[in-house]
Design a protein around this nucleic acid. Sequence first.
RNA 1: GCCGAAGUGGCGGAAUGGUAGACGCGCCGGUCUCAAAAACCGGUGGGAGCAAUCCCGUGUCGGUUCGAAUCCGACCUUCGGCACCA
Length: 802
Amino acid sequence: MTSAPRQVELRFNPVEIDRKWQERWEKDNLYRVEDRDSRPKWYDLTMYPYPSGDLHIGHWYAMAPSDCHARFRRMQGYNVLHPIGFDAFGLPAENAAISRGIHPYSWTMSNIENMRAQLRSIGAIYDWDREVICCLPEYYHWNQWFFLKFLEKGLAYRAKAPVVWCPSCQTVLANEQVLNGSCERCDAIVTRRDLEQWFLKITDYADELLDFGRLVEWPEKILMMQRNWVGRSEGVEISFDISHNGLEEKDIRTFTTRIDTIFGVTFLVLAPEHPLVPQLTTDGQREQVEDYVNQARQTSEIDRLSTDKEKTGVPLGSYAVNRLNGERIPIYTADYVLTTYGTGAVMGVPAHDERDYDFARKYGLSVRTVIAPVEWDGKEPTEAFLGSGFMTNSGKYDGMTDDEGVAAISADVERNSWGSRTTSYRLRDWLISRQRYWGTPIPIIYCATCGAVPVPEEDLPVLLPEDAEFKPTGESPLADHKAFLNTICPRCQGPGRRETDTMDTFIDSSWYFLRYISPGFDKGAYDPELLKQWLPVDQYTGGAEHAVMHLLYARFFIKAMRDMGMLDFDEPFLRLFNQGVILGSDHEKMSKSRGNVVNPDDVVGVMGADAVRCFLMFIGPWDQGGPWSDVGINGVARWLNRVWALVERNPDDLASGETDPQVVRDTLRVLHQTVRKCHGDLDRFKFNTAIAALMELVNHLSKVWAEASVDPENWRECIEKFLLMLAPIAPHISEELWERTGHPYSVHSQGFPEWDESLAADETITLVVQVNGKVRDRIEVPAGIDEPTAHQLGLYFANVAP
RNA sequence: GCCGAAGUGGCGGAAUGGUAGACGCGCCGGUCUCAAAAACCGGUGGGAGCAAUCCCGUGUCGGUUCGAAUCCGACCUUCGGCACCA
């Protein structure tokens, strides 16, 4: 992309002004955040970026408006913490190491170096002394410490879990490395493999994560997504009798939310991975079942979860007994049932469940209606009936509504000890093991006699060895590194072997906002006194793509820490706001292949940081995102140019004109309305309308100047307040103009202007009086008029009898 | 399939029950200039009219209301998220 054409001839040198003030602010430590401060604190946090190497215009879109908000809070008299750091562990660094032979550390740190400079060009109030980089030992030390604490508390455990495995590369793949069931590097068909891995018990907090009561302001949309993600459903765990098989296990446990349909069960389905599958398979079926189970292993989870795919399954050859009616029902295995949800077994009720219906039709299983729709004709249904109705074919429960049936059958099931009412969650425990080099080593030592032994706290951090080999074989560099691998068991002093898996990077982002409080603190993850002072985060902003995982993990972390007595609040982020996505000027998502990527450095180097900041905020509502426009940015550049010219005028030139009291009143009204509008809009992230209001004020002042109908004092007041309102939006140019108008440094240390309601609120509106759609009259009424008064006035003016 | 958000000039958008189109882009006309750019001034939803003015107009169709872009119902389209959850 070539640099954007500048079609505006500026009266000032924006690049020079950016440089001048960025240097001055840094020299004076203007934005250093002091912990000791009498002002109330405000923690305005933006999601920290991954150091990909280049600051994208999308980063600007996330950071410039959030900086504006932080600056606004600062001018409102808060001691604002608005920090920045880098989410520096992760896959891309490792890929760069493999493909280009650069060590992940050097790759990451040089990217950070580059991005720091680019971030500075935004002109944000970042206090760089608080920068957090989570790939450094001084940070990941505490990841390891948290892990040990979770382990102590019983919130971390080890279990087998499947990973995606490429048989040709001999390596574990991330989901994003699998394309249509094949490895992205070698095209081999991927399979799944069970590995011992570490989990954190987020499911212990499932119910509390659904309680959003302590959040002050989160988008309803995000709450909905989290609710669905946790996926709480209440039902009954009901067991089916298999004691006639002579196995140790006498029951198949299934979970259902529709226990009222228990008399409609015509088959059972076990997930292919279900432990009872081999035992319940008869010899005649064994070959077929084993083939099917192997095939299900090969099938990627995504394919297995696809609704388009036709249902498949295989009968095991054995049967179970439905204890409520004594019926024998066949047992199948089918991949539409997942081990990870409920009990991994499902009672098949084809008449009242779509998947079961499809399955039953395909395999010729009977379909028995047990909930009768209101106008049921008694015929076999042609699709699953999911609605409400009356129970039928259900013995003594016939005639009840489905709700009554749920209550009655649940009670009977519990009385007979056939099962119990339970709650099931879609949420799974958090798998934190990654078979990668570039992450936090999990501080565990395996010993032949002692088992998995935690590394003692005083031995932390377990350092990532710097001299790992990155070979394209797919071998984990840690598993290969003898010096790292071989160690001594801390318990018995015998030979030990280190855990070679590293942690998920979501661990880093689950507490990085605590580290900003005391980034250099070496006696713990954070200074507890300062934590009390700064946390929780008052306002969090970032992309909606982190709606579930990151935000749920961080909420879980804080709740677990609270229960371990480390802190005393319940939620990390009180308010949340999600910005939208910045699109290319072709209204499409920016991508290198489309060639619509905007490089912010090019634009800033010509237009200056303030023009880019203003344009990004002016495009439209921040949460909606919008298209970049090389042409549109000229609009705000032109406006800043007009602002410059306006502010440079000598107010004393107005002394010769004749002051018009009406114009003075109007001008003050516009001024105070603008202040009020900016206050409300900047508070609620409505930057586009705040800027529009400032533009209107400028337009008004230009007109007033031409008429010379206000006195110099009015003019000075307007300009001063205008510059203060502009300061959080365009910090460089407003600082420059603040100085040029003879004000003491710095505009950013001033308070945001206040408005006088009496000067702002003399608006009237035109009320259109209509009778049956015909306009009878138009009347001027006060804007704050209430409904009944308006109605009365209307009747009076329209000359209509009430 | 389910859930959510949104549909307004040539374009980005404003107005959340009170004169639709603020603000900006673009475009048109003018001033300045040898000329152009920039800057400044004016105009700019569609249609009719010399004009004052009138008619139509916020995805589509209905409804509520004195009055609807805004509230309600159905449908269409686009975008985002989730998905065999038993």
